[in-house]
């Protein structure tokens, strides 16, 4: 096989084929290649292109301990009962110091390990605010192209700036639970804005009613928030999960976008990230006379930072 130009391509083609034929090892492999943007990634993406945009992507976001993993577990069970195949991307935070991570979400989903209709991949946030790294988008693509019906993304909502999931998921489920301190306050600012559906989990706990009312109140303050539903669940027993699943299905139907549109939304997020990275790098690392001049004008208050930014980008 020396020198065959089509060699690698054939091999990658077959990897996508194998993945689509249900070979789990192939899917695992494709995910890794895309996650790491290895040499074969561009080819894989190309091979996958015709199959993208079919799956519904559901994001589960909320503070640590709210019960996201447990609820995802229950929701998977519900989807499997309908014979839907599922992909899960479970994101846990990386240690800001070492960059390492302990990925434990799937402990709560272990009843589905071994079911070929469920493929779970644990992912470290690797320093991305809100928990979603660009790798997550590519992993969604891989699971999507493999033919999974529903892709679930679990991330910790970091609060204010966490809107990543909004750009990636078709449906955004935001969790809260009693006993987590004043997270509702933080949620008001950011996450609440992006929610298609709100969940008060741990509805079995005595304080759940209060959390529920707080959420309703917060929603009432939100523009057009009146029609966002709030569902109560008990993830540990599966209570309320039927209603949750029904609501998700309802929203999915209402908001049904074309595959191309879904795909473009995800690409848009990738583009935004890439642009941010690039500009950030240009300004902070490379600088240049124009940047220096603008900085001086900011320091002397001749220019506000936002005006300086506009000028820099020529908009």
């Amino acid at each position: 096989m020396t020198g065959s130009i089509s060699g690698p391509a054939v091999q990658e083609q077959s990897l996508v084929k194998r993945m689509r034929a249900g070979e789990l090892g192939a899917l695992a492999r494709v995910i890794t290649e895309l996650e790491r943007l290895s040499k074969s990634a561009p080819q894989l993406l190309e091979d996958m292109a015709p199959f993208l945009g079919q799956a519904i992507v559901v994001g589960f976001t909320g503070p640590p301990g709210a019960g996201k993993s447990t609820l995802v577990n229950a929701y998977i069970g519900r989807l499997r009962a309908e014979n839907k195949t599922v992909g899960v991307i479970a994101v846990d935070p990386s240690s800001p110091i070492s960059g390492g991570a302990i990925l434990g979400d799937r402990i709560r989903m272990s009843e589905h390990t071994g079911d070929d209709g469920v493929f779970i991949r644990s992912l470290a946030s690797r320093g991305h605010v809100g928990g979603l790294s660009p790798a997550a988008v590519r992993i969604i693509d891989a699971m999507d192209a493999s033919g999974r019906d529903v892709i679930i993304v679990e991330t910790v909502g970091a609060g204010q700036s966490n809107i990543d999931v909004a750009e990636i998921a078709d449906i955004r489920v935001v969790l809260s639970a009693p006993g987590l301190g004043d997270d509702i306050q933080a949620m008001k600012a950011g996450i609440l804005e992006i929610a298609d559906l709100l969940v008060v989990n741990k509805a079995d706990l005595p304080d759940a009613e209060r959390t529920y009312r707080q959420l309703q109140f917060a929603l009432s303050l939100r523009r057009g928030g009146g029609d966002t539903s709030v569902v109560k669940t008990v993830a540990t027993t599966g209570g309320g999960v039927d209603e949750l699943a029904a609501k998700i299905a309802e929203i999915a139907t209402a908001a049904s976008r074309s595959p191309a549109e879904r795909r473009r939304r995800r690409a848009r997020q990738l583009l935004a990230w890439a642009v941010t990275d690039l500009i950030d790098q240009r300004i902070r690392k490379e600088g240049g006379p124009e940047v220096d001049r603008l900085c001086d004008e900011i320091l002397t208050a001749e220019l506000s930072p936002i005006d300086a930014a506009r000028r820099l980008l020529g908009t």
């Binding site: 272990s110 779970i120 644990s122």
Partner: peptide
């Protein structure tokens, strides 16, 4: 391992052999 910068997939005890294999495969 985490503090040394690695990503650790952690499980409950009592994993059956085929489950460990499955986890290793899915998580690569």
């Amino acid at each position: 391992l985490r503090d040394a910068g690695m990503e650790v997939i952690y499980t409950s005890p009592w994993q059956e052999i085929d489950r460990v294999v499955r986890l290793a495969l899915e998580e690569d």
